[in-house]
Design a protein around this nucleic acid. Structure first.
Lengths: 125, 125
DNA sequence: AACAAAGTATTACATTTGTAATCCTACGTC
DNA sequence: GACGTAGGATTACAAATGTAATACTTTGTT
C-alpha cells in the first residue's frame, strides 16, 4: 500500500469536499467552502495546489480549466488520522477513550443498536 | 473556564508524562521519554520550555533545579483534541465514526460489557 | 578561589501551515 | 489585433513545529 500524505487541518476541509463529490473545478470547491469557512478564494487555491503537490489530489485539464479529484481514499486517511489521534492522546486505543466518545455522542436508537451489535460480535471472539 | 493552549504532537508526549506523574524535573521527564522517543535531551527541554510559555506547564524552583507540573487538566485537553479530531475528519461525531473505532479496538470482556452498559443508558434517554 | 558539571536560557534553522497577493497567460470581446 | 478578465502559477511572509546546539549561570568540589 502506498504511503499516505499528511493532510493538514485546513487541507482536510478541501478533501472532505472532494470526497463528497468530484471532480470539481477550483471555483466549485471555493463555493462549497463558502458556507463553512471565510477563506479567500486564493487561499483555497493554495490549499488545492499543496494537496496536489502532496499527491492527495489529482486533476485533469478540462478545456481551459482543471477538474480536481481525490487521489487517496477517504477511509484510509480517516483511519490514519484516527490512529494518530489515539496514539497522541491516549497512547493507544483504549476503553476509557471509547467510553468518552460514546458518552459524548448523540445517537439514535438505531445507531445504538448497531453499535451494540458490534460489541456483541467483539465479545464472541 | 480558561482557554486551553494548543499542544502540538510532540508536546503531547511531554504532557502525557506529566499527567501520569508530577512534579518532575526536566531530567526525569527526559528519562521517561527515553523509551518511547529518540529525542535528544535538549529537544525535550525545548518542548518543556514551549509548554511553559503556552501556559500548559508550570514549575517551581526546588533548590537549584525546576520541578515541572501540568497547569491544564488532561481531561479538558483530551476532550478538546477529540472534538477537533472529530470535526476535522468526520465533520462531527457520528455513528460511522464510533463503529470504526469499536471495530479497530482490542477490548477485554469487561471493557465490552462496560461499553454496552453505556450504550444501554443512552438507549434509555 | 578556580574549575568542572549540571541546569537553564538563548539562539538556530529548515519545514509546514495559515493566509493571501501578485504575476502571467490564454480566451473571448470589441 | 488590443484589451480586459478569469484561472492557474509563482511568490510572500509570519507563526508554529521539529529538532537541536551553544551560551550562560549556579553550585559543588578540590
Amino acid at each position: 500500500m502506498k504511503k499516505l500524505p499528511k493532510i493538514s487541518e485546513s487541507e482536510w476541509q478541501v478533501m472532505r469536499v472532494l470526497w463528497k463529490q468530484s471532480p470539481l473545478t477550483a471555483n466549485e470547491i471555493v463555493e462549497k467552502l463558502a458556507g463553512s469557512t471565510d477563506w479567500k478564494p486564493k487561499t483555497i487555491k493554495t490549499l488545492i495546489t499543496r494537496l496536489t503537490k502532496k499527491g492527495a489530489v489529482k486533476f485533469e485539464k478540462e478545456g481551459r480549466l482543471y477538474k480536481y479529484h481525490p487521489a487517496v481514499g477517504k477511509d484510509e486517511c480517516v483511519r490514519m488520522e484516527r490512529r494518530s489521534f489515539v496514539r497522541r492522546v491516549y497512547g493507544g486505543i483504549s476503553k476509557p477513550m471509547l467510553a468518552a466518545f460514546l458518552e459524548d455522542a448523540k445517537l439514535s436508537a438505531e445507531d445504538i443498536s448497531e453499535l451494540r451489535k458490534i460489541l456483541e460480535q467483539k465479545a464472541e471472539e
